[in-house]
Each structure stands twice: as structure tokens, then as C-alpha cells.
Design a protein around this nucleic acid. Structure first.
Length: 151
DNA sequence: CGGAAATGCCGTCACTATCT
DNA sequence: AGATAGTGACGGCATTTCCG
């Protein structure tokens, strides 16, 4: 799978819309644009052996779960169910709960991997900077020796 | 010391690539 | 074609840092 990483990972979200339908629409529109605008990326393959066990918080449920318990999709699913018996509704709800749970775990894993990837890159930068420093010193020493021989 | 800004983490949604 | 996994983007909340 081809993955792209934004160059700037963190950003502060200063605009605060609610959790209602309008905000969801705005969110969706904004997302659709922004995800296509992004052209620059870098592959997220971890090539180093500098791995580290990520500190993943235990799965306590967050706040935003309470924010929008009935999304548009759920409502649509519920509508389908309400036309017939109760069973399809239950199935839809169960299916949604399962999907959310899986996605929650996937997101956790994704973040863990991303952090590990960033750590690897940082380690690599540190190693390369050290190597660069060493090589510069070596070059300086050799130049020095050469200078003395010429004289 | 209190409020604002910054940062970190989380859950969710939308989208895409891949699998079956 | 539908199911699934992975991930970017977003908003919300908690905590930390900064500054008047």
C-alpha cells in the first residue's frame, strides 16, 4: 500500500465547530479538498533497526465518543432498520459498534507506528550528524598533515 | 496566580488500496 | 463489488507552558 506522510505532522486546531450535522458537512468538505491538495509526501518504511516499544495508553474511552453517538451514517442505518423488524436495526448497530471498535484499535496502532517511525528518523539524523562531524574532523586532520609535509 | 496558547492523545469519519 | 485495513484530517478534552 502506498502511504503518504505530511511534512508537518502536528497542527493546532483553533477553529471549533460543534458536533452537529453542519459541522460534519464542513468537516467533510474541508477534508475532501485538503486530502487532494496534498502532493508532497514521503514513504513510511522503517529501515533502521532502532526500534522502540511505543507507549500506548491503555484503552480507556475518550471524550469524543460522547460527542456524536449518532452520526449520519448510523441514522441512515437505523432508518433502514426501522422500516422492518428490530433485527436489522440491531444488526446495523452491532456492525457499527464492531467497525468503530476495530477502527479505534487501528488508529491506535497507526499512531504507534507513526511515532516509532518518527523516532527512527530522529535517531538516524543524530547518527548521520555524528558521522558528518567525525568526517569533518578527519578531513581537517588530514589537511593538517598534508600542510606540514608540504612545508 | 490566572488565563491564553501550545501540545498531546483520543475517537471518529472519509477516503484509498488491497484482498477475497 | 463488497469487506477490510491503514491513515489523514478533524474536533474535543486534559495537561503543560508561557506571560502579564
Amino acid at each position: 500500500m502506498v502511504m503518504s506522510m505530511p511534512l508537518i505532522v502536528n497542527c493546532t486546531h483553533s477553529l471549533a465547530f460543534g458536533c452537529g450535522n453542519i459541522s460534519m458537512l464542513q468537516k467533510t468538505l474541508k477534508r475532501t479538498v485538503s486530502s487532494r491538495e496534498r502532493g508532497i509526501g514521503c514513504s513510511m518504511a522503517i529501515t533502521g533497526d532502532e526500534t522502540e516499544a511505543g507507549s500506548v495508553a491503555a484503552g480507556d474511552l475518550g471524550n469524543s465518543q460522547l460527542c456524536n453517538p449518532t452520526s449520519n451514517r448510523l441514522k441512515a442505518e437505523s432508518r433502514v432498520g426501522s422500516l422492518g423488524s428490530q433485527k436489522p436495526l440491531e444488526d446495523a448497530l452491532q456492525k457499527r459498534a464492531l467497525r468503530l471498535m476495530k477502527n479505534r484499535e487501528a488508529a491506535r496502532e497507526c499512531r504507534r507506528k507513526k511515532k516509532e517511525y518518527v523516532r527512527c528518523l530522529e535517531n538516524r539524523v543524530a547518527v548521520l550528524e555524528q558521522q558528518n562531524k567525525t568526517l569533518i574532523d578527519e578531513l581537517r586532520a588530514l589537511k593538517d598533515i598534508y600542510q606540514h609535509k608540504v612545508e
